[in-house]
Simulated scan of single mutants.
Amino acid sequence: MKKIAMVGLLLACGSANAISISGQAGKDYTHIGVGIGTETSGLAMNGGWTHNDDDGDAASLGLGLNIPVGPMLATVGGKGIYTNPNYGDEGYAAAVGGGLQWNFANSFGIFGDYYYSPDSLSSGIDSYEEASAGARWTIMRPITVEAGYRYLNLAGKDGNRDNAVADGPYVGVSAGF
């Protein structure tokens, strides 16, 4: 009976999910992302790759649950991350976190999220920390422009320095289908 209920829940959550593709550019970094169901309640998947010439790369695949909270959409979830810092060893991290998004007008919204992985859930780095916040404007469906601040740090381990893969403002564009 539990299996049938779980399958029903998964099908109900996945029925109205849309796909989005995004690109962001900051002063010293770029980020490419993809999401499924990130703007509706229910299950959501996301993936991303952040690159910095001086500090390395981080690629992630995440799963979350979006829950409506009044006019906002709250997300709780986790990410599996491949880390490749320029100063240190490549490895992995398993981060937990979440975020909030609030679409307060037909085409405007604000958002923020935070994910963290301690040393016990990572290898090659001491810890993983990622945060972003910003605002979105949907010009005309499917095109949305975005501006915000992204922080992604791979804390050094075994005498290696920290690698701030992203730390600064960015502008971006996304398409949702």
Score class of each variant (00 low, 15 high):
residue 49 W to Y: 11
residue 47 G to N: 10
residue 64 G to D: 00
residue 61 L to Q: 00
residue 47 G to E: 01
residue 45 M to R: 03
residue 60 S to K: 07
residue 51 H to Y: 06
residue 74 A to D: 10
residue 77 G to N: 12
residue 76 V to C: 08
residue 56 G to C: 05
residue 48 G to T: 03
residue 40 T to L: 06
residue 61 L to T: 08
residue 64 G to Q: 10
residue 37 G to W: 05
residue 71 P to N: 01
residue 36 I to R: 01
residue 69 V to K: 07
residue 69 V to G: 12
residue 75 T to W: 04
residue 59 A to V: 14
residue 76 V to R: 03
residue 38 T to P: 02
residue 59 A to M: 04
residue 76 V to Q: 02
residue 55 D to P: 00
residue 62 G to D: 15
residue 68 P to L: 08
residue 57 D to W: 00
residue 71 P to T: 09
residue 76 V to M: 06
residue 50 T to S: 15
residue 40 T to A: 11
residue 47 G to F: 00
residue 54 D to H: 10
residue 67 I to T: 10
residue 54 D to G: 11
residue 58 A to Q: 00
residue 36 I to L: 13
residue 48 G to N: 14
residue 53 D to Q: 10
residue 48 G to F: 03
residue 40 T to F: 06
residue 56 G to P: 08
residue 37 G to Y: 00
residue 49 W to F: 09
residue 45 M to P: 01
residue 71 P to E: 15
residue 41 S to W: 12
residue 68 P to G: 04
residue 78 G to Y: 11
residue 59 A to S: 14
residue 73 L to C: 04
residue 49 W to P: 00
residue 67 I to S: 00
residue 62 G to E: 15
residue 78 G to F: 14
residue 65 L to C: 12
residue 60 S to T: 12
residue 52 N to K: 12
residue 50 T to A: 15
residue 51 H to V: 03
residue 37 G to C: 07
residue 39 E to C: 07
residue 37 G to E: 06
residue 45 M to V: 15
residue 59 A to D: 04
residue 69 V to H: 09
residue 41 S to R: 13
residue 41 S to Q: 14
residue 45 M to C: 09
residue 43 L to S: 04
residue 61 L to R: 11
residue 54 D to M: 15
residue 72 M to Y: 15
residue 61 L to Y: 02
residue 67 I to G: 06
residue 51 H to D: 01
residue 43 L to K: 13
residue 36 I to C: 05
residue 38 T to I: 14
residue 58 A to R: 00
residue 41 S to T: 10
residue 70 G to H: 04
residue 49 W to T: 09
